[in-house]
């Protein structure tokens, strides 16, 4: 569903990604792990068009999307839930969710009716969001904001979801909750690329994983294979 081939990207003159290649099959959860500064978030940003890749290819459902603007790529079916959650603070929870489906809804009138089904799905997954639907998103707790960011990504009914560090800055209990949700998304057949610091938890939910070091993929394999790899155990699972 998502193929990244020999991707080079960076900021200004400093190159962060030096030839990243990875694949995400339809209906699978793929984890991207690695130390701080390895280029995980940059990979996400280059895939979703937040930064322009210098070279390489990004295929979404077989269609090349590298070099397009972020809003174009989103329209083609990619939902990127960015690092730091980035909910629209002054807007209500429900408005945040509606904007998640921006490309599928009428611009002026009747968008609420058209979004009702999607909203119900997200509210079923996150009852807390339904309770707070009229509250400004900026007043939610960190965990609730993360739920909202995931819900907002789901609203677009995307081909692929990129989830960047959903556990960042959250209490351990909430982190567990986030991983439970990822498990439920996986059961419902969502295609997901997950960036995580918590390598252990990420490998528990993933079908396949890539380990990034200095801007490229160092090791890849199924979680079972990575658990056999001594380098990975020493660096990330120890």
């Amino acid at each position: 569903m998502l193929q990244v081939e020999n991707l080079h990207a960076g900021y200004g003159t400093s190159e962060v990604l030096t030839g990243t290649t990875l694949h995400v099959k339809q209906g699978s959860v793929v984890a991207l792990i690695g130390a701080n500064g390895a280029g995980k978030t940059t990979t996400m940003r280059a895939i979703s068009g937040m930064i322009k890749p210098a070279s390489g290819r990004v295929l979404l459902g077989g269609q090349p999307v590298q070099g397009l603007s972020a809003s174009r790529i989103a329209k083609l079916g990619l939902a990127h839930s960015p690092e730091g959650r980035k909910v629209f603070g002054p807007l209500s929870v429900e408005d945040n969710l509606l904007l998640g489906a921006y490309n599928h809804l009428p611009m002026f009138f009747g968008f609420r009716g058209r979004a009702a089904e999607g909203l119900e799905k997200v509210y079923a997954l996150f009852p807390r969001l339904k309770e707070r639907r009229l509250q400004a998103a900026g007043t939610l707790s960190g965990g609730e904001q993360q739920m909202l960011a995931i819900g907002r990504a789901l609203m677009a009914n995307p081909k692929v979801i990129l989830l960047d560090e959903p556990s960042m800055g959250l209490a351990p209990v909430i982190v567990q909750e986030v991983f439970n949700i990822i498990r439920r998304l996986k059961e419902s057949g969502v295609t997901l690329l997950l960036v995580e610091q918590f390598a252990k938890s990420a490998l528990e939910v993933a079908d396949y994983a890539y380990v990034m070091e200095r801007g490229r993929i160092a090791v890849e394999g199924t979680p079972a294979q990575l658990h056999q790899n001594e380098r990975v155990i020493a660096a990330y699972l120890g």
């Binding site: 809003s71 989103a74 629209f88 807007l91 809804l105 009428p106």
Partner: peptide, 25 residues
């Protein structure tokens, strides 16, 4: 009251995040 109007507010709140929703800033 319109989704396009809410997109105004979204771009104002966080331009990058709005782009990721498919809203062209």
């Amino acid at each position: 009251k319109t989704l396009l109007g809410k997109a105004f507010a979204a771009v104002s709140a966080d331009r990058d995040a709005a782009e990721l929703m498919g809203i062209s800033a």
